[in-house]
Simulated assay, not measured.
Amino acid sequence: MAATRARIAVDAMGGDHAPDEIVAGAIRASEELDVTILLVGDRQQIEQSLQHHIQSPNIEIVEADGAISMEEGITELRRKPNASINVAMDLVKQNRADAVVSAGHSGAAMAAATLRLGRIKGIDRPAIGAVFPTMLAGKSVIILDVGANVDCRPKYLEQFALMGTIYSEYVLGVEQPKVGLLNIGEESTKGNDLALQTYELLEANPKIPFIGNAEGRDVLSGRFDVIVCDGFVGNVLLKFAEAVGEILLQIMREELPQGWRGKVGSSLLKPNLKRLKQRIDHAEHGGALLFGVAGICIISHGSSQAPSIFNAIRLAKEAISHQVIDRIQADRKQTEEDGLAQSATVNSEL
């Protein structure tokens, strides 16, 4: 029996370049990724954008009334129940879509996902997980949280580590993921209270393949497959990494020789330059997965253009195909059952 085609709701009104770039990325995804795209937003604007493309049978429009702008933020979510991000989340809630992709206001997307989809039982706080390239070709590291929680408790970071481990193993294909805690030193005695308490939890949890602290220089070394931190530090790290990638690409353009020598050199180096761009350009990664909510939600950069939207949809499809939500739910359920069994054993011995 053929696999069911994934249905992905895309917030067509979210982002700096909506809806034209959102639609362009969705069209490409519908043609190359074997998915059905539900473009959520103003029908007239979406149809105008679609006129610039060959019509795809795998594109559907779902009407929504307005969007949550960057200036409005999450306070408008309740006042605009039919805004595009709310309607997109409702499609997942109603099992009419398997995932949501949005390049709109990230805070609004997180709030809409939490309010409409709810958290996975056993997860106290959702976390944004971003995949970074490393110095080792073909190897990535997932870092969470990169912005959902400015302040964290140790148990939140423990849960982030569990979710990151599942993603690394089943989506990124790492057989035995190595988990690290972002800190100011490798020693277990280094760091603030949050780091010290989290270290103890990670070390004591048999489900977490924890190998110790990760310093800033270790993040992209390839030594770790999963790195956990609070959202404040993670977001600074994310923005810094994006800036470094952009600077490297700019330097590369500036340093290539001009004139005919530059053209010949660029032609010879084109395959290498393309691979370099794929490794360091954040647009190639598409976005970040919101872990911990009961549905797949990909949050893309506000400045996302068509290639980034395409990759965000690809990321959503991978999460669907590898049943990320089901695996996290199963892990949390097993943890709860183990806890109940342990309590029953203790009580019977008393």
Rank of each mutant, 00 (worst) to 15 (best):
V219S: 04
R279A: 13
S69D: 07
I8M: 05
V346F: 08
I296M: 05
L273D: 05
E71P: 00
G287F: 00
K190G: 05
S168A: 15
I247E: 12
I85F: 08
P271L: 09
D65H: 12
T75S: 14
V100A: 08
A6P: 15
V228S: 01
A99E: 09
A113I: 01
V87L: 05
A243D: 14
D90C: 04
E175V: 10
V264M: 14
I227E: 05
R116A: 04
A241T: 15
E47F: 02
I74N: 03
I211R: 11
V228D: 07
I320W: 11
T75W: 08
H105L: 01
V236I: 15
E200M: 04
N205V: 03
Q44H: 12
Q48N: 14
G222W: 13
G292E: 00
Y170M: 05
A288C: 11
V293G: 01
D124K: 07
G259P: 03
R5M: 14
A12W: 08
L172E: 11
G234E: 10
Q55W: 09
G25V: 09
E72F: 06
G15S: 13
E203T: 09
I123R: 00
D16T: 06
I251R: 10
T165Q: 10
A243W: 14
Q44C: 01
E336P: 00
V293D: 02
L162S: 09
L268E: 03
G25M: 08
Q197V: 01
L276N: 02
A319F: 12
I74P: 04
T345I: 12
